[in-house]
Design a protein around this nucleic acid. Structure first.
Lengths: 337, 337
DNA sequence: GTGAAAGCGCTAACAG
DNA sequence: CTGTTAGCGCTTTCAC
């Protein structure tokens, strides 16, 4: 008795081992109450036939899939950017899930239609829980899934009212404050910022952090907004230079934008850090290789993924989790400031 | 009648609409031969109950899952690198699969044990086909899956004898040849190379291409080997400078290593391109922002993903595919050479 | 300890 | 066009 795909079924193994399906099932699932001798016989049959359990059948009865979805609702170019945020999260998540013998199912939704597909996907019982790693706007997906009683954990503090959904984020404000303090301690007087997009938590929180830090020190804020890409950083830096030619420092909300800003400064003939100090955010590997190497704020991206995975595992096991996990950030000083 | 998860079943919808399960199934699956009136009635019931088909049940009978696995068998740090190769492939694959209404299942195997898990995963009928995007050594996985009759497409020419498995790769040799020709045309006489790891196709093919191109021109080859990381590029450049202080050009097998090499050259007081010309490979976004911007070889990473997805879809539909798809590369000239 | 039997929720002939 | 009837391959009481 073999399955449609030509693969052997439980029945086939049972026949070969001369036992019932129930017994084979017990052995395969590691039930302790099966005689040693029979266990051995069954295992041999499994081996010889190359039997592998059919997941669909198993899921149908157990109502569990053993997989967790990681949803990336982003426009293509952002996932494809090299700030390492998404790859880092993916890495952290997969490490933990692999250790827990769960499958990671990466689901991307570029199009708006993709959103529906994902809801159907999760609701269809394809996965036991969902991790949402989008950091954009007020995403309705988390709430929609939660409403369907599907365990959800968000990466990044959810905007809008995804009331009480558990999330994992980093201490943006703390990192920015450290950066600004460092600039002030270095004697900088006109500290500008290149902010990230204001529909993303990272963009919002980092700009807010900058404003708060400057307010404390009584300096005025000088702001340009980018979208976390190098090109936007380069453009924002030009803007800033035009707005205030006297500026002597700039806190840039991402290393990528900082890279762009460095190029603009170079083209404008400003020396870094002599004329203008530059601080980035993310501590990408790249930051060590720019000219000059970038002072930046380190955030534990991979750890975010690990925590998210940890939380969702707990949730799918019916346990409670803390509503918010906020990981620390840290200033890394290099030559640029 | 609702499922264990509290979700409504086909039966529930059928009851509510006053028809049989079969009819509901037809409507849900878009069969044309159902009376308009009844269709409407069923759809309304579906809507009201918030019915979503149970995938496990569907898969159990159709023997199809509608999902494709993309396997990344790499050590963490490489997937986590910012050369954009993996993200690019993921992007391309997901675009095509999304358009075909198939789910992408990303599967990572960092540990050796993970390899087995993946084989079980695919063999367990979790997916209809497998895409393998590892570019390392002679991976046994592709052949193992193929042996299990599971459709497989490789990203990158498989090393070892994964006999006749279809793959998608780029024209490494062609790109390198263009790079070396460009250097020669610029009057460079001592052209070194920083090669990639020699257990990866990209590393092997690019070094072979460099050797072939130089052989044609009668110059001697000067080689250092890195592992595609910036740090290794920096180290290899130091090596090269020690080996041949007179060198006036270097072809680097990846932009990341080229970035590292640029830093070493800067530290050594060599001007680029005046003293030493540098050419990279990959055309990452970063290449436009290095100092100076990097001349490099562009490869259509996203397109690789798209093609892989296209091939696997064909395969799962029982069609034949060409055994090898090789995409063109192109030299992009900027200030560094 | 082990087997028999009853489904999990859905699709796909086959009748009508 | 619609309903009836078998299962898909597995887990899980419940008897023995």
């Amino acid at each position: 008795v073999t399955a449609a795909g030509g693969r052997p079924t439980l029945e086939a193994v049972a026949r070969r081992a001369g036992v019932s399906r129930a017994t084979v099932s017990r052995v395969v699932n590691g039930s302790p109450k099966v005689a040693q001798e029979i266990q051995a016989r069954v295992r041999r049959a499994v081996e010889e036939l190359g039997y592998v359990p059919n997941q669909a059948a198993r899921t149908l009865v157990t109502q569990r899939t053993g997989s967790i979805a990681l949803v990336l609702t982003e426009e293509a170019n952002r996932v494809f950017s090299d700030d390492q945020v998404f790859p880092g999260i993916i890495l952290g998540v997969s490490q933990v899930l692999e250790a827990a013998d769960r499958q990671l199912v990466l689901v991307m939704a570029h199009s708006p239609a993709g959103h529906d597909r994902i809801e159907r996907y999760a609701t269809g019982g394809h996965v036991d829980g969902v991790l949402i790693a989008s950091m954009h706007g007020a995403d309705p997906l988390p709430a929609a899934l939660a409403h369907r009683r599907i365990p959800v954990v968000c990466g990044g503090r959810p905007l809008g009212r995804a009331d009480g959904l558990p999330y994992v984020d980093v201490d943006h404000a703390g990192g920015v404050a450290a950066a600004v303090r460092h600039l002030l301690a270095g004697g900088r007087r006109r500290i500008a910022t290149i902010a990230g997009p204001q529909d993303m938590v990272a963009g919002i929180d980092r700009l807010a952090g900058y404003r708060a830090a400057l307010r404390d020190s009584d300096r005025r804020s000088i702001v340009a907004v980018g979208d976390f890409t190098r090109a936007s950083g380069a453009a924002a830096m030009r803007q800033l230079l035009a707005d205030d030619p006297e500026l002597d420092a700039v806190f840039v909300a991402s290393d990528l934008m900082a890279h762009g800003a460095l190029r603009t400064l170079r083209e404008a003939g400003r020396r870094v850090p002599d004329d203008v100090a530059v601080v980035g955010f993310d501590d990408t590997e790249m930051a060590q290789f720019t000219d000059p190497p970038l002072t930046t704020v380190r955030q534990p991206i991979v750890e975010i993924g690990r925590r998210m995975a940890g939380q969702i595992l707990r949730l799918t096991d019916g346990e409670r989790v803390e509503p918010a996990v906020v990981l620390p950030t840290e200033l890394v000083v290099r030559e640029s400031a």
